[in-house]
């Protein structure tokens, strides 16, 4: 059962292997703090929607399952949005419209349709946590590379006298701005996907592995 959790971290990583949720991933990965906020939001919505879809899978009629899933997902996204506006207004301002756009993040609907409506509650919870954490780690990696090279900074949450911004000597004065722009997002994403493909292919080539082990996401 632990496989349901671990598969989302690497073998079926939502961003690098399954290639779902790329639009918000590219859009918000300009700062590390955005990746943390977006990741937390996606984990919460994914967990909530997987739990409810799994619990209601026998109640929801087959013909209207997609509208029903969308209602469940949109409800959780709205809850995240309202709670962030009320209790984390600076993070809400920072993420802007991308919080509302979690509702159209393909990972959420994809896991509801491909996993939660066919599996038990326990498996669905582990799947949501694995996929959500895998999405967050991937987003953090992209954001870290883009912010360090594109802006020469690492932006975290501000607390006390710490303003949340770590400036990297040398890079902060003359960053490679293109890495912070849309073009840089595509480049970083492309290189990281190539790295994950290569690692998956290497794993598939090991004795005792099957090709499907290495390209589990594509098969899924």
């Amino acid at each position: 059962m632990i496989h349901e959790f671990t598969k989302g971290l690497f073998k079926e990583n939502p961003i690098f292997v399954i290639a779902l949720g790329l639009c918000p991933a590219l859009a918000v990965s300009t700062q590390v703090v955005n990746a943390l906020g977006m990741g937390a939001g996606v984990i919460f919505v994914l967990l909530g929607s997987n739990i409810f879809v799994s619990l209601l899978k026998d109640f929801i009629p087959e013909k209207v399952r997609i509208p029903a899933y969308i209602v469940i997902i949109a409800s959780f996204v709205t809850i995240v949005d309202l709670v962030m506006q009320a209790y984390a207004p600076s993070l809400s301002r920072s993420l802007g419209v991308f919080v509302q756009l979690i509702v159209v993040n393909c990972i959420i609907l994809g896991r509801a349709e491909a996993f939660a409506n066919k599996n038990t509650l326990g498996s669905s919870v582990l799947d949501a946590l694995g996929m959500g954490i895998g999405f967050t780690l991937a987003l953090l990696l992209i954001a870290f590379i883009r912010e360090v090279f594109g802006a020469g900074t690492i932006t975290l949450f501000a607390f006390g006298s710490f303003d949340g911004v770590i400036e990297i000597p040398g890079l902060s004065e003359s960053p490679a701005r293109v890495i912070g722009l849309a073009t840089g997002a595509m480049l970083v994403m492309g290189y990281l996907q190539a790295l994950f493909n290569w690692m998956g292919t290497r794993r598939a080539g090991k004795p005792g592995s099957t090709a499907q082990d290495g390209a589990g996401g594509a098969a899924a």
Partner: peptide
């Protein structure tokens, strides 16, 4: 003040 600009760019 309030805005919906793109994080990291318009923001």
């Amino acid at each position: 003040m309030e805005n919906q600009e793109t994080p990291g760019l318009g923001k």
